[in-house]
Computed example of a mutant assay.
Amino acid sequence: MEIGQRIRELRAAQAMSQDDLAARVYVSRQTISSWENGKTYPDVQSLLQLSDIFDVTVDSLIKGDVDTMTETIDRDVQTMKRLSYVMTVFILLMVAALIWLSVQLSVWDWSLEQTVPTAVLALVLWGVAMFAEVWADRIKRDHDLITYQEILSFWHGEPVDRDTERGRRERLIPRWMRVIRTIGMALIAAAIGAFVGYWGASLAEMLLG
């Protein structure tokens, strides 16, 4: 993987730190480190910015890595799409399980012991959805995708524009705060699922009653 070595050499030649380069390409320092260590590759927009910053051609940057870069990025895009489908399907299944649980409790008046398998099923479905979310979040982190527009561009294989007001604002937020926000959104999703399940059971009770 020559591109990582090329970025490191060109950065050193201009006496730039990883933080300096990250600020000019609108990515995190960790992303620059991943590029230089061959863990991930720059996208098209980042390559154009790097070629401009270092005053070299894109071809001289990527050299023989173009096929590997394309395969890696395409694989990550496809993985993100599959994970998105998994999250959607399992969250819907979780909601269905919560509705079924509410029917068992409210309509059929089952005991808590009898509803344990359904509750466990709902929890497992939620866990699978959250596992897919964490995996997708790791891919987004590897490619430094913060905003919805950046994710959408990456999804469709388009250049990712990180130099936006929202992108700059989001990148100023510490990572630990973004993690807490993600956990909060997951808990809210679970609460919404429980709410839908409760009202679904109430509707079922009305129809059956």
Rank of each mutant, 00 (worst) to 15 (best):
E2Y: 06
I3Y: 08
G4V: 00
E9M: 09
E9Q: 13
E9H: 08
L10Y: 05
L10G: 12
R11C: 13
A13F: 02
Q14G: 01
A22E: 07
A23Y: 03
A23L: 09
A23E: 02
R24F: 04
R24E: 13
Y26R: 07
R29I: 03
I32T: 12
S34R: 13
G38L: 05
P42E: 00
Q45M: 14
L48A: 06
L50G: 01
L50D: 00
F54C: 00
D59A: 15
D59R: 02
S60E: 12
L61A: 02
G64P: 15
T70K: 01
T70Q: 12
T70M: 09
T70G: 01
E71P: 01
T72E: 07
R75Y: 11
V77L: 03
Q78W: 11
T79E: 13
M80T: 06
K81I: 13
R82G: 10
L83P: 04
V86P: 00
V86T: 05
T88S: 12
F90T: 14
F90W: 06
L92C: 10
L93Y: 04
M94H: 15
M94S: 15
V95S: 06
V95K: 08
Q104V: 08
Q104T: 13
S106C: 08
W108A: 06
E113V: 09
T115S: 07
V116M: 06
V116I: 15
P117E: 09
A119G: 15
A119P: 15
A122I: 09
V124E: 08
L125N: 02
W126N: 11
G127W: 14
G127H: 03
V134L: 13
V134K: 13
W135I: 00
A136F: 11
D137P: 01
R138A: 15
R138K: 07
I139K: 00
I139L: 08
R141C: 04
R141D: 13
R141L: 04
R141K: 13
L145C: 05
W155S: 15
V160G: 12
D161G: 06
E165H: 11
R166S: 05
R166T: 04
R169C: 02
E170I: 03
E170H: 04
R171F: 02
L172D: 14
L172A: 12
R178A: 09
V179G: 12
I180C: 06
I180T: 05
T182S: 13
M185C: 07
I188A: 09
A190M: 10
A191D: 08
A191S: 15
V196N: 07
Y198R: 07
A201E: 07
S202I: 11
S202K: 10
L203H: 02
L203Q: 03
A204V: 13
E205G: 10
L207K: 02
L208D: 00
G209K: 00
